[in-house]
Design a protein around this nucleic acid. Structure first.
Lengths: 354, 354
DNA sequence: TAGAGCCTGGACAACGTTGTCAGGCTCGGG
DNA sequence: CCCGAGCCTGACAACGTTGTCCAGGCTCTA
């Protein structure tokens, strides 16, 4: 670690400024070329009044000629607001987050803001790292799908006025807006639907209960079973499995065990997909209800019955609350639960086949 | 599990609203509190050498106590680089862009950069608007899935050293890196696959030929037909339709017209999905090959044969080139075509049924 | 024609950070 | 005991923009 000498950056800078990084023109350059003052250029760039059409034309011409582009870093430094919001989610590649992300962006755009986003990959540390990086960039607001369960690190940010809305799961140990689906009610309804079609031995496959949504859906499952007066066997529940390999094993065990299930409730879309594959290989027809809609679910044989969340609505609601926080219209943090919708397509209406 | 109300405790609300727009602490504040100079704080924050452990401790304490977070806008203004790259794509909600976006982010993360992204919604004007907004924020680089076909507006940016890689379609009127799939070859292979299974009357449904990918795929279709010595009837081609309603009509016309097709080549994933629906309603078995893979394609009856693009590889390649441009390792713009892969699942292997 | 008021344009400071550079301290050797 | 070397530390300028404020020229009216 011989880092005493400070000569490490010099040659590269030289090379780069020679070839790649030609300094960009500044307002000063534009002003010089147009033969006007610095502030006049600023006025033209920002469409402020008080500039003669003729002067404006000259300035525009200089801007065009030099390829000037305002430096928003300097602008932000001066003005305080960045007109950008951050979105931290679990995985951009997950189909649930596409529409969500899109609807957040749509609202941001309507408010003239840009969207910066990142994936936490379900890693609390990475979530914090990302969120703090966004705060360092002084985003005006944050939409966070939490990976961790302690968000006290956000306290200084909230105090500093960073609008914050959590999505899909509540924040841990701080008081903030949350927008989520009615996971409990949705799961309960989905399982009740199976019960209504005659099932009693119903399996549940879901994520680790330390994840809020997973816990809520499990709670919904238990509630529906209890409402129906059905005692739940431990072998019907598989918690904390999410990778296809283990979901497959879990499903197969439920189907062939000592007390085989006649129906499965799959607590999220990834699980559902794997279960569909497993069921397709079975001779026996097993009923299935999944939480989260999946594309082409209606074209499968049978169509997949699901408890659908409205990802776009969730994103929109969250983003709108965020901007209302920024307006000052909103002060008190709230928890907003959006309803889910049971979509029957066949797989959830199959009768029990022992 | 007895937290069914989920009601919050609200002790901090007033505190938060009171200090809503409270100015954030700066290094100056930290310096004052720690009883050290401004620059010393800067050194601690940036992990620069030359600070006594004792001094560092005092500074860290002050940082903690004040909830200080470095203001990256000021930092960027001083240093020139933002450590962020922009990604402009067509629609975040499109399943093709999820993995692409994710892999770009992954590479960015490996280089310590954040990802800012936006959707152009296929609107050239909006694309330009977005790109320029990103440039104003001084992103170090841009990954662009072009909507428009003239990108001369980017010339000043390129000259100023903004690394730029186009994806999926080449840039218009400027010389820049492009990473895309072998659309021509993929489509040709897909259609040839149908020919090999005995089809001669093969339909083509795709986007407007002014879109590069659509044009290339159409060219592949024509090439395959010509190779097979099959003259193409105009009624077999439907160009420029992409919304489900019109795709449906187009497909139905091809299937019932005077010279009905026995197979369809669907030139993108949205078209494929709609065609699947239409074919499911037909008595006659019609063969289908789609461009772009779709989820669960293997579970349908029959499985959907597709020409698959590797979205993740495209994103990764593009992002890596971008960072190599920033390194100075790369200078000459190139066009990189990634191969596609024909995945046979059944629908493309059906024999002609007249 | 002079004075008042308006309109346009520019000088200057400030935003929060980092690079430069110089000053003060400690410590060891002469 | 003094001096130089080496290490810490802090004062200061600069990054590019915007807000404030003032100067000068114009028009309009009395």
């Amino acid at each position: 670690m011989d880092d005493r000498t400070g000569h490490r950056t010099v040659p590269q800078t030289n090379l780069r400024s020679a070839t790649r990084y030609g300094t960009r023109p500044t307002m000063k350059d534009v002003a010089a070329r147009a033969g006007v003052g610095l502030k006049t250029v600023s006025r033209v760039v920002n469409g402020e009044p008080g500039v003669t059409p003729e002067t404006e034309r000259r300035v525009q011409e200089a801007i065009e000629a030099l390829g000037f582009r305002r430096n928003d870093s300097a602008r932000v430094l001066r003005k305080g607001r960045t007109a950008s919001i951050g979105l931290v989610l679990e995985d951009l590649a997950d189909p649930f987050y596409g529409p969500l992300s899109r609807s957040v962006e749509e609202v941001a755009r309507a408010h003239g803001a840009l969207l910066i986003n990142g994936s936490s990959a379900e890693d609390p540390e990475r979530e914090q790292e990302l969120v703090l990086a966004l705060c360092a960039r002084r985003v005006d607001g944050l939409v966070v799908i939490p990976a961790g369960d302690d968000h006290r690190y956000l306290e200084p940010e909230l105090k500093a006025g960073v609008a914050t809305v959590f999505v899909d799961r509540p924040a841990g140990h701080i008081d903030a807006d949350v927008v989520l689906s009615d996971n409990f009610g949705g799961a309960r309804d989905g399982v009740a639907h199976l019960v209504a079609h005659g099932h009693r031995r119903i399996g549940f496959i879901g994520d680790m209960p330390r994840i809020h949504t997973a816990a809520e859906r499990l709670r919904g499952y238990r509630a529906a079973m209890e409402d129906a007066g059905i005692p739940v066997a431990d072998s019907w529940m598989s918690l904390g499995v999410t990778d296809p390999e283990r979901v497959r094993r879990a499903a197969e065990e439920m189907l062939t065990g000592r007390d085989p299930v006649t129906a499965i409730f799959a607590a999220n879309n990834r699980v559902t997909v794997t279960v569909i594959r497993v069921l397709a290989e079975q001779a026996r027809r097993v009923a299935l209800v999944g939480f989260d809609d999946i594309e082409l679910a209606d074209l499968l044989q049978p169509g997949v019955t699901v408890v659908a969340q409205d990802a776009a609505a969730i994103g929109r609601t969250a983003a709108e609350r965020l901007f209302r926080q920024l307006d000052g219209t909103l002060v008190t943090p709230e928890r907003i639960e959006l309803p889910t919708r049971l979509i029957t397509r066949g797989s959830g209406e199959l009768p029990p086949a022992d």
